[in-house]
Design a protein around this nucleic acid. Structure first.
Lengths: 162, 162
DNA sequence: GCAAGCCGATTGAGAGTTCAACTAGTAGGC
DNA sequence: GCCTACTAGTTGAACTCTCAATCGGCTTGC
C-alpha cells in the first residue's frame, strides 16, 4: 500500500494554508459581488471578457475557451444573463450551428457599476497585503501550476512570467 | 466616478493568471477525487479533519470552524456522508442542542483509499512544479491573504510562516 | 451527392452551496 | 421561576455546476 510519496510536514502546512486561502478568497470575492452587484463571480468574469472583445461580442466556444469554462456551464450562465437583459444571443452568420453572445448596454452598465467595488476588494484582499516581490512570485507560481494542469489554459500575456 | 484606484497592468496580469489558476486547480482536484473516489473535495476534507480528531469525532460547529465552512453547508454535507455510511451523527451528552459527527470505519477506509491518489495529484500539480523557494513563498503569501480576509480563519500551525 | 463522423451548442437531471427561516435548547437578569 | 436573548443545528427553496444525452449543422471521403 505504500509506494505513495507523501508530503513533508512543511509541505503539508503550506498546502493546508494554501487550500484554506483558496476557499476563503473565492468565497470572499463571490460574496462581495453577490452582495453589491447581485451577480456571482463567474458571471462577472463573463461580462469582463465580453466587454473587452471587439464589438463586445464572442462566439460561445471562444468565450468558453477564454474563461476556461465548459460549454455547458457557459450555456446555462448566458441563458441566465440573457434573462437579466445583460447579454443577447445572436445567430452566427458564417456557421448556423454557432451562436454569438453580445453584451448589451445594460450589461455594460452593470459591469461598470460592479467594477470599482470588485477591484477594491481585490486590492484590499491581495495586492495591498503583499510586497512587490511576493506579487511577482505569485504570478510565477500561478503560471507554473497552471502550466502543469493544462498548458492550453495559460492565458496570453502571462508568458513573460515563466 | 473615479476615485477608484485601479490595478497596474502588471498587477492585472498577475491577477488574471492567479484567478485562472485558482479555478483550474480547484476543478482539477475536484475532478480527480470525484473520478477516483466518488467524493467531492469538500467531503474529502471533512473526512480528513474528522480522522485527525480525538475519537474521530467532532461537534458540528467545531467541524465547521475547522473547515471554514458554513453550518448549513456542513449540515447538508454530513447528511450526505451519513447516507453513504461514512459518518454517523450522535447526540451531544452535555448540550442537547448539539450533535456530534463521528467517522465510521467505512468512512476511514474510504479516506485511506482516496488519500494516495489525492496526495499524488497535489504533488504533481503543485509541489513538483515549484522550487523550494516558491513553496515557502506560497505559504507566506497564502497566510498573508488569509489573514486579511478573516484572521480567525488562519489555521494553527501556519503562524510561523507569517 | 450522400453517408459517417465530427463539432457547436443546448438541455435536463442530479449534486452541492447559499440564504433565510425555523426548531429546540441554553443562559442571564430579575 | 420565568422571560428574553442567544446559540446549535436543521430544513427548504433558489441557484450554479457537472455530466451525459441530444439535436442540428458542417465536412470529409468516396
Amino acid at each position: 500500500m505504500d509506494d505513495t510519496r507523501w508530503l513533508s510536514a512543511a509541505d503539508q502546512d503550506v498546502w493546508r494554508t494554501f487550500v484554506t486561502m483558496l476557499g476563503a478568497l473565492g468565497e470572499h470575492m463571490d460574496r462581495q459581488l453577490q452582495r453589491d452587484s447581485s451577480m456571482p463571480y463567474t458571471y462577472y468574469e463573463i461580462l469582463v471578457v465580453l466587454s473587452a472583445a471587439p464589438g463586445r461580442a464572442l462566439r460561445m466556444s471562444e468565450l468558453a475557451g477564454l474563461r476556461g469554462s465548459s460549454r455547458s456551464r457557459l450555456s446555462h450562465a448566458v441563458a441566465r444573463l440573457e434573462a437579466q437583459g445583460w447579454v443577447e444571443r445572436r445567430e452566427c452568420p458564417t456557421d448556423k450551428r454557432g451562436s454569438i453572445a453580445v453584451l448589451t448596454d445594460a450589461g455594460f452598465a452593470a459591469l461598470a457599476a460592479a467594477a470599482p467595488g470588485h477591484v477594491n476588494t481585490v486590492r484590499e484582499a491581495v495586492f495591498d497585503r503583499l510586497t512587490p516581490e511576493q506579487v511577482t512570485a505569485l504570478g510565477a507560481i500561478s503560471a507554473a501550476i497552471l502550466d502543469g494542469i493544462d498548458p492550453d489554459k495559460t492565458l496570453p500575456g502571462c508568458r513573460e512570467l515563466r
